[in-house]
Design a protein around this nucleic acid. Sequence first.
DNA 1: AACATAAAAGAGTTTATTGTCTTTTATTGC
DNA 2: GCAATAAAAGACAATAAACTCTTTTATGTT
Lengths: 145, 145
Amino acid sequence: MGIFSKTCEYAMRAVFFIAHRTANGGRVGIKEIATGINSPEHFLAKILQDLGRRNIIKSAKGPNGGFFMDDVTLKRRLSEVVEAVDGNGLFTGCGLGLDYCSETDPCPLHNEFKAIRERIHQMLENTTIEEFNEDLNLGVTRLKK
Amino acid sequence: MGIFSKTCEYAMRAVFFIAHRTANGGRVGIKEIATGINSPEHFLAKILQDLGRRNIIKSAKGPNGGFFMDDVTLKRRLSEVVEAVDGNGLFTGCGLGLDYCSETDPCPLHNEFKAIRERIHQMLENTTIEEFNEDLNLGVTRLKK
DNA sequence: AACATAAAAGAGTTTATTGTCTTTTATTGC
DNA sequence: GCAATAAAAGACAATAAACTCTTTTATGTT
């Protein structure tokens, strides 16, 4: 695996996709999202339900329903998405998996890992969905070939 | 999970442990390693078999047998252990899990992730088992509380 | 040669992750 | 109120990761 779980990868791509598709109002359905980011539909549905409960995305049932973002959710940071799905083990855990490892009682690689973890955290912390969306709008990047 | 798989964590701890216990000759048995690094014995056995096949550690059967390191294996880098167990997905994969993502066709977070991945790789590349062992010998660090 | 030791190999089980399918609930428009 | 729509929820199924137990093979010692 990469750095994140598959679930977390889907979550990030989906959030970006929803932001991109609904920045100017409207909603987008689960089918379109799943196709758009290349993920299994029903599995993604579960993930989005969870993100909805945590107020990272918005959703509405019924006709004209679907997923969308509002001013609050657009301001969310990528770190919040990752933490919601994968927890904070990536930011806090010991590289060697040692329970005792801490600042005062460091494992052999503690300081090296600490620097890397902080770097990852920073990157995710500094990226808001909104910001990111601008790149997508500019066509600089995309979410699927 | 943290950055590495559990299997990989055990592998790293075990390699360090073996190096530490056999730097001045001798061998160490699977039971002692498992206890010493706090891992399930038989599961660790599998991992060590694999590391042996890949010539990252050495082993000998029979009485006075066990695991050990020689001049060659002591020079191995931590990156080789990680790659043997977790593959190179951590060093090469896309952060968002996109297949197309590459240098010429980067995903939204490509450059940020690239920097982090390179950092991780560098850290693991720059750490040889031998070097590491010196820290352990100095009592600066340990593998189990 | 026989025995004891210790890793290697094989064949599982358990748990977590990932993915699928069906039913229920809420909302909108008529 | 009724039908259509779309997410929420529940109940599984498949795969992979983590872990366990037993048997086999190699090697040193007597």
